[in-house]
Amino acid sequence: MRISRGDVEHIARLARLRLTEGEKETYGLQLSDILEYVEKLKELDTSEVDPTSHVIPLSNVFREDLLQGSLSREEALRNAPQAADAFYRVPKIIE
């Protein structure tokens, strides 16, 4: 399965990555290789195998609805590249 340049550009846009022409070429080939490898798995007969989303045989892990305290605003904002007063500050979102 070959991945087109358009596919690479689409995926890059979803991941907010800016790729050079060379990178588009490289990643296109690498992604194609990965898909080909996965294609191989399809040759296996899995009709008797349950789909596995989790490998741990566990379900229903809950916490009770109790308050456990939060970070102070100063702590929460400490790692933010930019903060303004009480908020995280980000590049202008264009709607």
Partner: peptide, 19 residues
């Protein structure tokens, strides 16, 4: 375990999980 209360001061009801 952060509070869901409406109208709190901005960014005072967060923790490492929800941020």
């Amino acid at each position: 375990g952060c509070s869901t209360r409406f109208g709190a001061e901005p960014n005072t009801q967060t923790c490492p999980v929800c941020i």
